[in-house]
């Protein structure tokens, strides 16, 4: 039987309360969101916090809303809520496409935006989506709030800009009117982590790409994206040939390692193929295409 090692537990009553609990207990404390990454790691002794600060009562971290020209997703919004959000679907169908293939319906009832971001698994699907959409992450500590671009958020596998004593409070996505977006993922079986995944979000005006966002997961793409491929496409027509060239550039910039999910050359091939498919569908969905 797998059980976490002995640990203390406290429920935060507000973000301010959670921050003061974190400060009080230093690096021995861990926030508990959906628990669907943290509890498995505690069972395996890969994480050994002394105290868990449960943030499930913090309604201030819930909700999906529009604020000016951004969509704001609270840290405690679940995968299921993202999947079913009309606001996100209207502006960014990429969320629904990605969420449909994140874990399974029951896990999606518990796993959260904030937990996914902070777990920072190299195959985290919402990280690839966030990179494609050029989101920003809002982090709060005792001094106040600061904003970090999604594309600067990850320090490496399982490491982010969120330091001890800090809470990720929300993620913001700029709204791009008329954009098209899409997500593609290959997994070994239903509900599994990606062997490789790619997302795209583009706008087209005057018959050429006016903005291009690419997100790539699970194949060691720097900051979950491919900036050279993006730059190549801007100002070019959305032809099959241009998209194929960009997809190959994107794949060339990835550095996957072989593991039980497949050999490196296969993953590189997937990065090319899935980027191509995501870009093609996103371009077709963009207004003015």
């Amino acid at each position: 039987m797998q059980t976490p090692a002995p640990v203390d537990y406290v429920r935060a009553t507000s973000v301010a309360d959670a921050l003061s609990l974190l400060q009080q207990h230093g690096d021995e404390a861990r926030l508990l969101a959906g628990g669907h990454s943290l509890l498995p790691m505690m069972k395996l002794r890969l994480a050994r916090p002394e105290i868990l600060v449960d943030i499930n009562d913090l309604d201030e971290l819930r909700g999906i809303r529009i604020d000016g020209n951004e969509i704001v997703v609270g840290a405690m919004v679940t995968h299921a809520e993202i999947l079913n959000s009309p606001i996100l679907f209207e502006h960014y169908p990429i969320f629904r496409e990605a969420e449909k293939v994140i874990a399974d319906p029951i896990v999606r009832n518990k796993g959260t935006m904030g937990g996914s971001m902070c777990q920072a698994d190299p195959a985290e699907d919402l990280s690839a989506v966030g990179a494609a959409l050029r989101g920003t992450v809002v982090i709060q500590n005792a001094e106040g709030r600061r904003t970090v671009a999604m594309r600067e958020f990850h320090e490496g596998p399982y490491e982010t800009k969120v330091a001890d004593g800090e809470i990720l409070v929300e993620v913001r996505y700029p709204i791009l009117p008329g954009s098209g977006s899409a997500y593609e993922k290959v997994e070994r079986r239903s509900g599994d982590w990606a062997v490789c995944a790619a997302g795209a979000c583009v706008t087209i005006s005057g018959g050429v790409f006016s903005s291009v966002g690419i997100g790539i997961g699970a194949v060691n793409a720097e900051h979950f994206t491919a900036v050279d491929a993006e730059a190549f496409l801007v100002g070019k027509e959305p032809t099959a040939e241009n998209i194929a060239t960009a997809a190959q550039m994107a794949a060339d910039s990835c550095d996957p390692s072989a593991d039980q999910r497949g050999p490196a050359d296969y993953k590189k091939h997937l990065a090319m193929e899935l980027t191509k498919r995501a870009l093609t569908r996103a371009a077709a969905a963009a207004k003015g295409a």
Binding site: R11, G35, L39, I106, V107, N109
Partner: peptide, 12 residues
């Protein structure tokens, strides 16, 4: 809401 109870603390 259906939940996998092996991955939730009783305390929560």
């Amino acid at each position: 809401t259906p939940t996998k109870s092996c991955t939730m603390l009783a305390a929560s």
